[in-house]
């Protein structure tokens, strides 16, 4: 066969092949991830302003963050709360959307597109639009709520509301993406399973609870892990809309890292914060993994 005679890989030691296959990715990861991350890990033990040489300070940065730094703890709390608000809402709504647009109906492609649109629109422009919507005195949201005799609410400037307002926007921006992923999951469930259930007389709700939800569990697991990674690092919407305020109520770890690095030139502290963030996400992902596999068994 021609493949056999011309293919140079044929002559290779078979144990080398998988390493060869992962080589490009590993090389890339080493140079553009591991080395920079290693550098940043080292820097987290230094005081470094990026313009003069770093100075070794041991665990001082970690000690500073973890002991008496209320801003760090506030941002950790905000980050956790933000994720806890965004993720469940995102999952519930995107699943609902996915189920709706999975129906064989006319015009369903139009609805899929509408739900997906926010995903592809620039976060900067989207933040601007939402700031106008949330405006206290002349914003669209208060003007609509006013018709029902509600409000007005100071969406972005009330420390009790601001984080929730950002979460609402974030859910809006992100559900389209997870809708597509759930939709794919739904299409992967064989139709005959539902047919059997219908014959057995199970209601739509029961079918969802007993069939759809459990069958989609791997998809949900994946969405949670990805969601944790992305919401824990959220930065763009905060930078554009609230700059962490009011009263630090929207300062998240992702924003804090940016502030330390590029506003205060404290790369050492920024790196230390990032590694604590890494630790938290890592622990949560593992816990989640354990939880899911336990539940599956």
């Amino acid at each position: 066969m021609s493949v056999r005679s011309t293919d140079p890989y044929r002559r290779l030691n078979p144990t080398a092949i998988p390493y060869l296959f992962i080589l490009p990715v590993i090389l890339f990861t080493v140079f553009f991830k591991f080395i920079p991350i290693g550098v940043s890990l080292l820097l987290s033990f230094t005081e470094y302003d990026m313009l003069s040489s770093p100075r070794w300070v041991g665990i001082a940065n970690y000690a500073y963050l973890l002991s008496d730094n209320d801003l760090f703890w506030t941002s950790l709390k905000n980050t956790a709360q933000y994720s806890l608000e965004v993720l469940p809402a995102n999952i519930a709504i995107s699943l609902l959307l996915a189920i709706l647009v999975n129906q064989e109906l006319k015009g369903v492609a139009f609805f899929r597109t509408v739900f997906y649109l926010p995903v592809v629109t620039s976060i900067i422009a989207v933040s601007m639009i939402w700031m106008w919507i949330y405006n206290y005195q002349v914003g669209l949201l208060n003007s609509i709520l006013g018709l029902f005799g509600l409000g007005p609410f100071d969406w972005l400037r009330n420390p009790k509301l601001a984080l929730h307002s950002l979460a609402i926007m974030r859910v809006w921006k992100g559900v389209g993406w997870n809708m597509v992923i759930y939709l794919a999951g739904l299409q992967g469930i064989p139709r005959y399973i539902y047919e059997a259930a219908t014959i057995d007389g199970a209601s739509a709700w029961t079918q969802f609870r007993r069939l759809t939800w459990p069958l989609l569990r791997p998809v949900t697991y994946y969405i949670i892990v990805m969601g944790l990674i992305s919401t824990f690092q959220s930065f763009g919407e905060i930078y554009a809309m609230t700059q962490g305020g009011p009263l630090d109520s929207t300062t998240t770890l992702g924003y804090l890292v940016y502030q330390q690095a590029f506003q205060y030139w404290e790369m050492g502290k920024a790196s230390a914060t990032a590694f604590i963030l890494f630790g938290v996400i890592f622990a949560l992902s593992i816990a989640q993994n354990k939880f899911v596999s336990a539940e599956m068994n």
Partner: peptide
């Protein structure tokens, strides 16, 4: 107790 927002 806060600055008014710009409208667009």
């Amino acid at each position: 107790h806060q600055q008014a927002e710009a409208v667009g």
